[in-house]
């Protein structure tokens, strides 16, 4: 027995060039690797790549606001909006909304994320779960919730009125204000999660070290805490920005038709005006803009050493 074991453990016998076994092994590894990836790749191709290709193709088709789509090749749906001031306004509004929601969401989520990342409480797990629990309800439900709270006879306005601060209700729905409030709250869980995972480099000892070297609390924050949490902040911002720009439900419901952003515009073109080629072209434009933003983000994070 021992002889067989010994032989089995020895180096490849005569006739096998060195490295052959390793190569065979790595070939086998690669095959396993591909086999494991296959379901995900197939799923992505079927549900993402093919529809995307179809959408890009669609954007070059002829078509009009009457729902007629003719196979063809035209750049009309790309060129027309570029000369259309309405399109520019919608695009600018969209990105402005993304920016404002992103910044506000990061601002209100930062302290929460910092607290959860630092907490040594035995309730830390529970508190984290609570912070992200809103994800368990759909954005539609939460948007309706905000409509109830922010409406002309809603909680905020009726409270302020009964306390005598206002006589006429504040306009908090059917405008950008309402959409912004709703989006900030809806995306907070994402921002909190992104920041908690991005706060890894910050150990309390670094802040203590800065303090012992003479940094006031404010200086500790600006020189140590903030720079070290910046990667998490950027990730959270990007995430909320992308989600806000692409979201449709909240701007539609809380905006009440008064807020037009790219997502609602695409929806209207698709379901209302049945102008599929134009809707497809708008979607492609949005996609390209996202691509640009993400590449800028990656360059930024590389620069700050994340």
């Amino acid at each position: 027995m021992s002889i067989i074991t010994a032989a089995g453990n020895s180096a490849p016998g005569p006739g096998l060039a060195p490295g052959v076994l390793e190569k065979a092994k790595s070939r086998r590894d690669r095959r396993t690797f591909l086999a494991l990836l296959a379901p995900a790749i197939l799923g992505l191709v079927a549900s993402f790549v093919l529809p995307l290709a179809y959408m890009v193709r669609m954007s070059f088709n002829e078509g009009g606001p009457d729902g007629v789509v003719e196979e063809g090749f035209t750049l009309r749906h790309y060129i027309e909006p570029l000369g259309d001031s309405y399109f520019w306004k919608v695009t600018l509004d969209t990105f402005q909304m993304g920016l404002v929601v992103g910044v506000l969401c990061v601002l209100v989520s930062y302290p929460v994320a910092m607290f959860l990342a630092r907490s040594t409480s035995k309730f830390k797990g529970l508190l984290t779960a609570l912070a992200i629990a809103p994800l368990l309800t759909s954005a539609v439900v939460r948007t309706y919730g905000w409509m109830v709270i922010l409406g002309d006879t809603g909680l905020v306005n009726s409270s302020l009125k009964s306390m005598g601060f206002i006589t006429d209700p504040l306009k908090l729905t059917n405008n950008m204000t309402g959409v912004t409030i709703g989006l900030v709250e809806i995306f907070m869980p994402y921002a909190i999660l992104a920041m908690i995972s991005g706060f890894g480099r910050l150990s309390p000892q670094l802040e203590e070290a800065a303090g012992s070297l003479g940094a006031s609390k404010f200086k500790v924050f600006t020189r140590v805490t903030l720079p070290l949490t910046l990667p998490g902040v950027l990730t959270a911002f990007l995430m909320v920005f992308v989600l806000s720009v692409s979201t449709f439900i909240t701007p539609r419901l809380l905006g009440g038709g008064a807020v037009q952003v790219l997502a609602t515009e695409i929806y209207d073109q698709t379901t209302g005006l049945l102008n599929w080629p134009f809707a497809a072209a708008l979607s492609v434009i949005l996609l390209v803009l996202f691509g640009i933003i993400i590449s800028v983000y990656q360059r930024l994070t590389k620069k700050i050493g994340a």
């Binding site: 480099r201 150990s203 000892q205 670094l206 203590e208 070290a209 800065a210 303090g211 012992s212 070297l213 003479g214 940094a215 006031s216 609390k217 200086k219 500790v220 140590v224 720079p227 070290l228 700050i304 050493g305």
Partner: peptide, 19 residues
């Protein structure tokens, strides 16, 4: 407060600023 004491502290983990 700590930042006015003028102590020089060396931590077990060194706590050098990574950035």
């Amino acid at each position: 407060p700590v930042h006015k004491r003028g102590m020089g502290m060396v931590f077990q983990s060194y706590a050098l600023f990574p950035h």
